[in-house]
């Protein structure tokens, strides 16, 4: 039973790591986001390779949880970190987006005004 779970968790974490690497390579995922995903993948992989530690008296004593629960719990913790990181990034992007939209509108207005002054009214703009 434990062996099966080990395989499943191991394969899943490998898939996660490979996908992340591939996306970085294709430049579809920025490194700053990739680091947390890679870290999550590595931690889950370690969990699948050395389940003994999580089954040991020591870990069971300090955590009181079983192996699979440990895997899920720790993955969940990292997912929380990633989602939180996204919120921070999205907030920053929203602010930059707003500033860009305002700047764009002001420049477009200036541009139209300049073009109106420079071009005679009967000429269509180039």
């Amino acid at each position: 039973m434990l062996f099966k779970i080990q395989i499943i968790v191991g394969v899943l974490s490998m898939l996660l790591l490979l996908t992340t690497f591939e996306l970085i390579r294709k430049k579809r995922l920025r490194e700053e986001y990739a680091i947390l995903w890679l870290f999550t993948g590595i931690v889950v992989l370690v969990l699948s390779l050395w389940p003994e530690f999580f089954l040991s008296q020591f870990f069971a004593k300090i955590s009181g949880i079983f192996y699979l629960s440990a895997v899920v719990l720790i993955s969940f913790f990292f997912l929380l970190l990633i989602v939180f990181h996204f919120s921070v990034v999205i907030s920053k992007l929203t602010g930059q987006n707003k500033d860009l939209a305002q700047r764009y509108a002001l420049l477009e207005m200036e541009f139209k005004e300049l073009r109106r002054r420079c071009l005679p009214p009967d000429r269509t703009p180039l």
Binding site: K98, A101, Q102, Y104, A105, L106, E108, M109
Partner: peptide, 14 residues
């Protein structure tokens, strides 16, 4: 003309 809807705060600040 703002390129898309920014909401009242973004519009006022513009």
């Amino acid at each position: 003309d703002l390129p898309f809807n920014l909401g009242i705060g973004g519009a006022m600040q513009a």
